[in-house]
Amino acid sequence: MIDSKTLDHLALLARLSVPEEEKEQLAKDINNIVKFIDVIQKVELSTTEQKEFAQKNVAREDVVMPLGSIYNLVEAAPLHKDGFVQVPKVIE
């Protein structure tokens, strides 16, 4: 059961501010979805199955390649100056 305390914790982990007035409905919606996905709990998996079917990396090996203009990518940032991304101070 996701209560308001759990919701606050999830919001912090996800770096997502949730307005106070939305919390109740949001918790209710998420609880309904969790109830729905909980059907998978009735499926029993053996240890071998769990091992055999664990997550595997499917992406190819990384390769080094030249990239076009880095400038274009920096331009996509909301704030930038002289080819750098501008961010607030991290340490006061």
Binding site: L7, A11, A14, L16, S17, V18, L26, I30, I33
Partner: peptide, 18 residues
């Protein structure tokens, strides 16, 4: 993120985090 993501996106991010 709180201001610009739509409701369903926020719901899925929180569910995924859970």
């Amino acid at each position: 993120r709180g201001a610009l993501f739509g409701k369903e996106v926020r719901r899925r991010i929180l569910l995924g985090t859970y």
